[in-house]
Design a protein around this nucleic acid. Structure first.
Lengths: 367, 367
DNA sequence: TAGCCTTCCTAAACCGGTTCAGTTTTGGTC
DNA sequence: GACCAAAACTGAACCGGTTTAGGAAGGCTA
């Protein structure tokens, strides 16, 4: 049953740490280049090398040049570990994700967000320490141990919740942070926000303009700030359009929940003619459920999502959705966090509001 | 346009590093608990505390107890940074992902894999350092700098390629690693594998049994080992079933490419009656394209995917696919890497072969 | 009682940077 | 030439552990 494909030459038990030697000409120990060696070469004390490196005042211009020259010749890079010990910093940032693995897997937000973060951190020589934990309790413990171990100098706070306990915790721990979105209580941390209200309102307005009167909402978890905010935006938009209150079903943002909610909505006596989903994965699941129930989209049911994930363009019909920009968000958050740590303060950043992208999943009702 | 929602009380510019003080009773400096303090309390030298902590021989049993007791009373945890400096280890593991952001975003493999990795690392006090880079060249540089900075003690090697340059690089750098899958050339590193051949072959066998004779393959990138292996398995399965060679289109695993490939296949004079996709996102895109072209699935076209991502169950018709188990993979890889670093060697692990999951997207042809 | 191991422990070096008190050099002013 | 301040630089302490050489105490053999 186990078909061997290209099994490499390897005697059992030979797997192991590769030998340290790399070049053939390694006669003795490859002499480690430390700040001492550089100092000697440049004919100065190691303290001065340190000064020159971190370009601080008090080093004569020509001496500085000589030192940097020596460092370059020797190929010296200061030891991050030694530097960490004396500066009490780790030159790394942290991201703790507390999510049900299923939800995490179907949500493309984080991969993109992280790609954005990395694009800023890498050139700065900062690393990203990632933790994925199963629940909120473990999450708090994780922050504590990240700080206790001095693993990170700052963190990204995503998936804000009402009265988020992480904010006082981080304050207590003295850990700088950036919040993705604005917390609903006083926070000392800079916030990077994308206003998602206009996008949701535009979705509803778009549906209303098409003639829909019974619009339902498959919402995300109301414990999450953006979940309840999108919910509020939905209700406000209905009022604004002069429509009656719509049905709302709260979910955990998972694909399975989106599917279930859709079934419940569509198997009623008077089903809605349009459904606004709080994220794309649920909308796609809803699309599947509609198919299964024989409800044609968009002719008998209009559907909108949120996020504009890659899939949207390629399901059928292509999904009308609201375009967020997680990569941009990641970049902004990383820049802000770096600024905060460097200057001791950073301004909030408001990214351009997410915009409605109209595709084929919405049409006038009973078309 | 910018609707303010719960803007917290905050004077501009007040954002900044939160004050370090946490408890009200912080009279003077909160006295840092170092190994010195513990040593003093236990009435021994700090060297001995170190010995006791790392339970090494040469400490009298009662003394050891006294030391550990003192440490507990003082709430002492050894400083990771200091320990890093003297042991030359970082107690962190690395994962470098080189992927087009689009592909990365639609592929739920990594989130799940990482969740699995974390479930093993966290209890061991190890952190995961994640890098997402745009291309293979940057990837190599990233490994170099991770080592140069001593950020990680070992790495996970995913998305193996033919004659993968990362393997000799890691050997040169002396960095322990675990490969996800077996490289096609000698490798000193332990491999954690899931044999994907049986799954692909089962897919084809299943389709052949249903009566399909024109089966096409939308393959992944052939530079990736698992891409070309699945391709080979596909061809082999056709031969085994006594079917003629099938059409194969190579892609980059992206949703867009899956959609395009499907259009090309279906708009031919004699289109296939079944398509085997190298991953689920492409299969789902293929499903969308089939709908768009008015080709009914599964009646006029059968479709199979690979990975069994969450979506599969919720699209319509639900997708027949091959179930991989990225979380289990993550766990196995993390365990193996830890073993390797502790013992200097670790055995290969063969995880149970991925299995075919039959759902609604496959049926006899021209039903 | 000397000689020799063990066992338990200490003191100090070490990892490789940063930082600061203080010394030497430089240059300007009267 | 004396005086002084600023600039340039050194030496040593420091971050907080690990590791090693070696010392003291105790037990065993001859």
């Amino acid at each position: 049953m186990n078909i061997p494909v290209n099994i490499p030459v390897k005697t059992p038990g030979s797997t192991g740490k590769p030998a340290a030697e790399s070049t053939a000409k390694s006669a003795a120990h490859p002499p480690k280049v430390t700040i001492e060696v550089v100092a000697k070469r440049a004919g100065v004390s190691k303290g001065l090398v340190s000064f020159a490196l971190n370009n601080r005042p008090g080093v004569a211009p020509e001496t500085r040049v000589r030192i940097l020259q020596a460092a370059k010749e020797l190929g010296w890079k200061p030891s991050l570990r030694a530097r960490s010990l004396s500066t009490q910093r780790s030159y790394a940032l942290g991201l703790v994700i507390a999510r049900n693995p299923d939800v995490l897997a179907s949500d493309p937000f984080f991969p993109s967000f992280i790609a954005g973060v990395e694009s800023i951190l890498a050139p700065e020589g900062r690393a990203l320490v990632l933790s994925v934990v199963p629940d909120a309790e473990t999450e708090l413990k994780t922050y504590r141990s990240l700080v206790a171990d001095g693993r990170v100098d700052g963190v990204f706070l995503t998936d804000l919740r009402h009265g988020d306990p992480r904010i006082p915790l981080l304050v207590e721990l003295g850990l700088p942070a950036v919040t993705l979105g604005r917390p609903d209580e006083p926070s000392p941390f800079p916030a990077v926000t994308v206003d998602d209200t206009p996008g949701v309102m535009a979705s509803v307005a778009h549906l209303a303009a098409l003639g829909h009167r019974r619009i339902a909402h498959v919402a995300g978890s109301s414990t999450l700030l953006h979940g309840s905010r999108r919910c509020a935006a939905f209700a406000a938009a209905l009022r604004e359009a002069g429509l009656p209150e719509g049905q709302t079903i709260e979910t955990d943002f998972s694909v399975a929940a989106g599917s279930d909610a859709t079934r419940r909505l569509l198997t009623q006596d008077t089903p809605p003619t349009a459904i606004v989903y709080a994220n794309d994965p649920m909308a796609i699941a809803g699309l599947g459920m509609a198919h299964e129930l024989g409800v044609r989209v968009p002719h008998e049911l209009s559907i909108t999502g949120y996020d504009d994930i890659d899939f949207c363009r390629y399901v059928y019909p292509p999904l009308t959705t609201v375009s967020a920009a997680p990569m941009v968000w990641g970049r902004a958050a990383a820049s802000t966090l770096l600024t905060l740590m460097e200057n001791g303060s950073a301004d909030d950043v408001d990214l351009p509001a997410a915009r409605l992208v109209i595709r084929g999943s919405t049409a006038p009702p009973r078309g």
